[in-house]
């Protein structure tokens, strides 16, 4: 059987190189902009001597290759600079909102995967029936709805009847009551439901449509006819042959959208005022907090590359034709 370690190694190396390229682009892009950190200094005391001192302080007097090496080294050790606004290290400032975003996104994605894949398979199998047409149209509708509009509609029409909070991540008064971990967990989950549902519904539409078409393609293959001739039942045909083959493109899609969702949640987190990475990036933009933005973009890049790497690994497990 295939050991696959050399495949994993090569994929990992490729991912690292991609990250390095992304980091380098980050470095180059900000230096393409005219001027530097001292250009904007317009004060009485801003003499040439003072500017030179500031440049030296930030290491801007050194040569560009030298600056690059320092930048790569510091980035690799996790030093992304300090936020202009809070004066705290960027990595720690980013980590807090990321920790809030991850469970919310995962909740929505799990919802979308379980329902979207099921409905996609069912509607492919029952092609042309009412079930199929209903799921295609609802999938198409949800997929094409603007995210922020869907979020607003959920606030208007779902939050009230369901008694769900529409803003923030936790009830601020709950902490004073010191109720223990269970009510706190329930409170957190309640705050998560609507933003997660928004992500979930949009992804659900996408996954349903893609699963359906991928499944239809698999069902038209010759080996499905072979499976029928072998006397397998419909369910056995789907489970043993069609599903695994149609999953191949879907796996890639799911991991790719997981990578992007950290950034893509900006609109949702803004509408729900949910303190995740999306809202943080939005605030950093309005506050011109460049170190935070740089760090945030780096984080997004790394998460996309990481998810791609994971998709590659899973693909290797699922498809024997992928060789080392």
């Amino acid at each position: 059987m295939r050991a696959g370690w050399s495949y994993v190694g090569r994929r990992a190396l490729f991912a690292l190189i991609t990250i390095l390229v992304a980091i380098s682009l980050n470095f180059v892009l900000f230096r393409l902009a005219p001027g530097d950190r001292t250009s904007a200094l317009r004060c009485q005391g801003c003499t040439q001597e003072f500017k030179a001192q500031v440049r030296a302080e930030f290491g801007l007097d050194r040569s560009v290759p030298e600056q690059y090496l320092v930048y790569v080294k510091e980035t690799a050790t996790g030093n992304l600079g300090r936020s202009f606004v809070t004066q705290q290290p960027v990595l720690a400032e980013l980590w807090k909102p990321v920790r809030n975003t991850i469970p919310m996104v995962l909740l929505g994605t799990l919802f979308a995967i379980s329902l979207g894949l099921t409905l996609g398979v069912v509607s492919a199998w029952r092609r042309g029936t009412i079930t199929d047409r209903t799921s295609v149209w609802s999938g198409l509708l949800l997929y094409s709805l603007p995210t922020q509009w869907l979020a607003l509609m959920l606030i208007f029409y779902a939050a009230g009847p369901l008694g769900l909070p529409t803003s923030d991540i936790a009830d601020p008064y709950l902490a004073y009551e010191n109720p223990g971990w269970w009510p706190e967990l329930v409170d957190r989950l309640q705050h998560m439901v609507l933003p997660a549902a928004t992500i979930g519904l949009v992804l659900f539409g996408e996954y349903t449509l893609i699963t359906r078409s991928s499944m239809l393609e698999a069902l038209g293959e010759d080996y499905i006819l072979t499976a029928r001739a072998k006397g397998l039942s419909n369910w056995q045909i789907v489970r043993r042959h069609a599903l695994r083959n149609s999953l191949l493109p879907i796996v890639t899609l799911i991991f790719l959208s997981l990578g992007f969702i950290l950034g893509g949640a900006i609109l949702i987190e803004t509408v729900f005022n949910y303190p995740g990475i999306g809202l943080q990036l939005y605030e950093s933009v309005t506050e011109r907090d460049y170190p935070m933005l740089q760090g945030g973009f780096l984080l997004l890049t790394v998460s996309v590359i990481l998810m791609n790497f994971l998709a590659d690994l899973l693909y290797f497990r699922l498809d024997p034709r992928v060789t080392e």
Partner: peptide, 23 residues
Amino acid sequence: RPHRWTDIAMVFQGAMNAFDPVR
């Protein structure tokens, strides 16, 4: 269905695609 393959079996045109590639 009970007769398929036990009583009457088939060799398909173009065996290239008659096998599921992932099993």
